[in-house]
């Protein structure tokens, strides 16, 4: 049974409710802005882990279109992408194989810092001299 991993808490959850909006990995969000009225959950896809378009789509949804609901990553993300997924604004990952949850949790903890601002308002490393 596919499960959902919460990237913020590391909790494994049932895959409910389903996403209100599924955005294809090749959709040009600038040319075709999404209708976000009433949308609470958006699913973005990595058709294979090497296809990183969803990382840009997520940031666009957060920073350009102001989406504040849940962003889910589906398709074939790998555990080593967990940290990056969270930093570009994903909240959760769909896991076809729930046994991989632990590897994703490890991925989330791989780094203590990042050099880039997170769209989630996490540490702003370029200001590390003033913040730290």
């Amino acid at each position: 049974m596919p499960k959902l991993l919460d990237l913020n808490s590391g909790q494994l959850m049932d895959l409910v409710p389903e996403a209100d909006l599924v955005i294809a990995h090749d959709r040009d969000l600038v040319a075709e802005p999404p209708e976000l009225e009433g949308v609470r959950i958006i699913e973005l896809k990595l058709p294979q882990f090497k296809d990183g378009r969803a990382f840009s789509q997520a940031r666009l949804l957060r920073s350009r279109f102001g989406f504040t609901g849940e962003l889910r990553a589906a398709g074939h993300p790998i555990p080593d992408q967990a940290f990056a997924l969270r930093r570009v604004g994903f909240d959760s990952v769909e896991l076809v194989d729930a046994a991989r949850a632990e590897a994703f949790r490890m991925g989330l903890k791989a780094y203590r810092f990042a050099y880039q601002r997170s769209v989630n308002g996490e540490a702003i490393p370029f200001q590390r001299q003033t913040v730290a």
Binding site: F49, K50, D51, G52, F55, S56, R59, Q81, F83, A84, L85, R87, V88, Y111, A114, Y115, Q116, S118, F126
Partner: peptide, 13 residues
Amino acid sequence: RQWSTFHPEFTFL
């Protein structure tokens, strides 16, 4: 170098 290191958006170009 710092900005591009593990850039979350641009590691799977």
